[in-house]
Amino acid sequence: MTTTEIKTACLLAGIYMTRMLGLFLIFPTFSLLANNLQGSTPFKIGLALGIYSLSQAVLQIPAGMLSDIIGRKKVLYGGLTFFFIGSVLAANTRDIDVLIIARLLQGMGAVSAVCLAYVADSISADQRSKAMVIIGLAIGSSFILSFILGSLIADAWGLGGLFATTACLAAMAIVFAYLLPTPKQTLAVFNWSDLIKGAMNWQLLQVNLQVAVLHMMLSASFFLIPILLKAGELADNSLMSLYVPAILIAFVAIGPIIRTSRESSATRLPVFWAVFALALLLFSLADAFVDSWWFIAVLALFFFAFTFIEAVLPARLFQLAKTTSRGTTSGIFSVYQYGGSFLGGLLGAKLYTTLSQNAILSDAFYFLAMLTTVVAIATFIIQKKG
């Protein structure tokens, strides 16, 4: 890679990292802290959690289209500015309705597809895989950091501190965008046929549906897990002492598997969906969490399966996508990803309001495990037929 390509990859990785931190930073504690806001209800908390992803889902394709017409950097500036304004508003409110609006503004910074297109514009074809490795490492690191920092910041400064941190990250992302070299891009009118073909392709649809379900399960789980812990034997344990060991164990365990199975990774998806379902099923045994290491082991299994699926699906996507329509394909993929996160927040809230009345909140994880098992079976059948 040339010096310019390395600079571009690292700056894009920085933008990705701040965006992913903005998505995941609040996950460990949001459902508990938001309960103290004026006017909060389980539904509104779930809406505040998920509307960020809904806004992202709705705007990914339009943002990609606009970047084709007016240029990547202009769209990056606009999206990251919305992200910053929403973060500042969220940090300074104590009202759940205002927070919902703030999260909507945050989500309007829909730049994931634009960043992927930036890679294609700025980095030579034979070096793009290296650039994606750099970006992938940044995303993985942000995932770990979000659960470490999220718990620390929440303990010290509460929900306002979490969003103030996100505002600082947004400001950093704007600086990264300013420092990006101008891409070698030919401005053009968006080709609707690429969008239609990408949306209707059966193989791409399989990948998109899987990422939607994956992020729906993640959002729903992290709406319910903090509440489940607070009501159980581990209520006195800090969330950081539970989350961090689990994430580190999963991160260390999954690395060798991904590195040694690049060619066959997609064929292992049904197995890892089954492992993911098993982890969700084990969460239903909330009464058994009398020892912190039992919970850590289950959560590590959850992240182990999630991380593998999360890494393999984009790789599979770009195996199937045409070189000339990667931006459109990644935009559609992002719509499903963030749409799944939005639905997951609402699903978590619905399960909580329905099941907590009968003191059987842990049964919510039976339902999530059942849905995930269906995906595992469907993926296995499709692979056998394909």
Rank of each mutant, 00 (worst) to 15 (best):
Met200Ser: 14
Lys197Phe: 15
Val374Lys: 09
Val244Glu: 02
Ile257Val: 12
Arg103Ser: 04
Tyr336Arg: 08
Thr329Ala: 08
Phe306Asp: 01
Ile61Asn: 06
Ala164Asp: 06
Thr353Met: 15
Asn35Val: 15
Gln185Phe: 11
Leu248Ile: 14
Pro245Phe: 04
Ala57His: 03
Met65Ser: 09
Leu49Val: 02
Ile257Tyr: 10
Glu310Cys: 03
Phe283Val: 05
Phe176Lys: 06
Met370Asp: 10
Lys74Met: 01
Phe289Asp: 00
Gly232Gln: 08
Glu310Lys: 06
Ile6Asp: 11
Met200Asp: 12
Ala167Lys: 01
Phe342Ser: 10
Ala297Thr: 07
Asn36Phe: 08
Ser40Phe: 01
Ala288Ser: 09
Met108His: 01
Phe304Ala: 04
Pro183Gly: 05
Ala117Ile: 03
Ala212Asn: 07
Thr323Ala: 13
Leu248Gln: 07
Leu204Ser: 08
Pro226His: 04
Ile69Ser: 14
Ser122Val: 07
Ile225Gly: 06
Ile96Pro: 01
Thr307Lys: 10
Asn191Cys: 11
Ser221Ile: 05
Ile196Thr: 14
Ser146Ile: 00
Ile196Trp: 13
Phe223Gly: 00
Phe367Ser: 10
Tyr77Asp: 03
Asp95Tyr: 11
Ala231Trp: 12
Ala266Gly: 15
Val213Ser: 02
Ala288Val: 11
Ser238Tyr: 10
Thr18Cys: 14
Glu310Asn: 03
Met20Ile: 13
Gln106Lys: 03
Gly79Thr: 00
Met216Pro: 06
Gly136His: 03
Leu32Gly: 06
Ile134Asn: 04
Arg316Thr: 14
Pro181Trp: 02
Gln106Ser: 11
Ala286Thr: 06
Lys74Tyr: 12
Leu346Gly: 03
Ile227Trp: 07
Ala246Gly: 07
Ile225Thr: 02
Leu218Cys: 02
Thr182Trp: 15
Ser67Ala: 12
Met216Ser: 06
Ala177Asn: 02
Pro42Thr: 04
Gly86Ile: 02
Gly348Glu: 04
Ile148Trp: 07
Val88Glu: 01
Ser31Gln: 02
Leu180Phe: 15
Tyr336His: 14
Leu195Asp: 07
Leu351Tyr: 08
Ile332Gly: 02
Phe302Ser: 04
Thr353Ala: 15
Val133Tyr: 10
Leu47Val: 11
Ala220Thr: 02
Ala300Gln: 01
Asp363Ala: 15
Met172Arg: 13
Phe24Met: 11
Tyr16His: 09
Thr354Arg: 04
Asp126Leu: 09
Leu145Lys: 01
Thr353Phe: 13
Asn208Cys: 12
Leu204Gln: 05
Lys322Tyr: 09
Leu269Gly: 03
Thr354Pro: 07
Gly22Ser: 14
Ala170Thr: 00
Phe143His: 08
Thr4Cys: 13
Ser151Leu: 05
Val111Gln: 08
Ala199Arg: 05
Ser53Asn: 01
